[in-house]
Every structure is written in structure tokens, then in C-alpha cells.
Amino acid sequence: MLAQNVIFGAIALAMAAAALRVVTTKNIVHAALYLVVVLAGVAALYILLAAEFTAVVQVLVYIGAIVVLFLFGIMLTRAPIGITSDLDNNQRGLALVVSLFLFGVLGAVLNDAYGSTKLASDNVIQKSADVGNSIFQDYVIPFEVISILLLAALIGAVVIARRD
């Protein structure tokens, strides 16, 4: 039990720090790299929660594909690579206040509702087979809908970004 908590603490600290850096760093490429740290941390959390398959997908899709997409986006928009002080707009104060209050409200609610709820210690590992069965039996329609959504997004992205 202790080992799990120590690991969680380490992951959480790394994630929190990296997340803060994503939104504060002055170097846009660094922001993408910090994002990798956060995403990997989320994958680690999934492992802690015994959700192996989702963890693997997280690594493959997020770190493997989406971050690369971001790097391409940075490249194609010729964002200044290197330190620039011009990445924030002038409503940082408002944003800070809003997000701090948001965290306050969320924290209060969570503390109120789940303050002492424990996860079962004998957490069974949820097998990939179960996940697959669930997707293709109970949720096959949302699955199909999402495939159509992806197709639409694909076509949409091509149409929007096409030079004409």
C-alpha cells in the first residue's frame, strides 16, 4: 500500500509541475515536451488504477500521435522556436483568478463528497478482453458513431487546411 502511495505522490508532483510549465513556459517547444510528461504521468495513473489497456492507448495515441501533431503545428505556423515573452495575452490576471476559484470550488466539492472514500485494495486488473467486449457489445453504436466522427474530422481537417 505504501509503495503505491509513494509512487502516486511522485507521479502527481511531476505531473503538477509539468502541467504548470505547459501553461507558463516561454518556449513553445518546451511546452510540448512538458505536455509529454503530463501525458505520461496520466498513463502511469492508469496503471496504478489497473487500467492497462487504456494506459497503452494513452501512450500510443497521445504521446505517439497527438504530441507529434502539435510539433508539426508549431513547425507549420512558424512559431518562434526559442524563448519569447509573447505567448500570453493580457488577461492573465483574470484567468488566474478564475482558475483558482474553480479549483477552490472543485476541491471543496470533492472533499465534501469523497473525502474518506477508499479504493478497494484488492483491485482486480481489468483485462483488455473485458474492455473489448464492453465496447463491441454494449457500446457498439457509440463506437460506430465515433468512427464516423473521426472520418468527418479527417475530411474537415483536409478541407479546412487545404490551399485553394
Partner: peptide
Amino acid sequence: VQQYAAFLFGAVVLMGGALV
């Protein structure tokens, strides 16, 4: 849009806070 989003979240926070 970002300013609108700030108002939006601000309003959500206020309403959520009021609920709490």
C-alpha cells in the same frame, strides 16, 4: 473568444460556488 470563455468559466464558478 478567450475573454468570453473567461466569463463563461467565471459564471460557472460563481454558480457552482453558490450551490456549494
